[in-house]
């Protein structure tokens, strides 16, 4: 039994709820086939892809950690390959701590976090939800500042999610500037010798 890390890229048109539903299915399949359990789930939310994937320009990113025997992996991979709403996924061995504050998202980062909280409050059951809870919280409080890229047409997805109180829209209004290329300015490297 080893611990793995998986990054999903879902179609950005999915709402966080829909993503969670799918996720529950996948993770159930893993634990069924491989034993083990999900140890962490972090929603990154919608983010611009560095290049189009399946003609999509944006994707909904989600990182999870889980333990599994070897059979769980092949079961999960088979399931995911058949899933049209998963643009890409990557399963690697988990290394170090899962950085919760990683989302280099667009302006929607905060909205995404709140949305996740909202749905946790609704409580969909399942043991992985508790992990999701805390990770999503930190996610929201993490760095929301990075306003890279457009808050494009898909923001309708967030509306349903924040149905209790979360002002999911507020965050998604602002469209920031461009994308990743902005960082080039900082010196890539300390001077070599």
């Amino acid at each position: 039994m080893r611990e793995y890390e998986i990054v999903y890229i879902f179609r950005s048109t999915l709402t966080p709820e829909e993503v969670d539903q799918k996720l529950a299915r996948y993770h159930e399949a893993v634990s069924e086939a491989g034993g083990g359990e999900v140890t962490a789930v972090v929603h990154w939310g919608r983010r611009k892809l560095a290049y189009p994937v399946s003609k999509q320009k944006n994707g909904y990113y989600l990182v999870a950690r889980f333990t599994s025997g070897p059979d769980g992996l092949s079961a999960l991979e088979r399931l995911l390959r058949l899933e049209g709403d998963v643009l890409r996924f990557l399963i690697v061995l988990a290394e170090g701590e899962l950085s919760v504050a990683s989302p280099p998202m667009d302006g929607e980062g905060d909205a995404e976090g709140e949305a996740a909280d909202g749905q946790d409050a609704e409580g969909e059951g399942g043991e992985d939800e508790s992990d999701d809870d805390e990770s999503a919280d930190e996610d929201g409080s993490g760095d929301d500042e990075s306003a890279d890229e457009d808050a494009g047409e898909d923001e309708s997805g967030d509306d349903d999610s924040g149905n209790d109180d979360a002002g999911a829209d507020g965050g998604s209004e602002d469209d920031g500037g461009e994308d990743d290329t902005e960082d080039e300015a900082d010196s890539p490297v300390e001077e070599a010798e």
Partner: peptide, 10 residues
Amino acid sequence: DYKDDRVLEK
């Protein structure tokens, strides 16, 4: 971390 694109970008 392969997820930290801001570092890798450099």
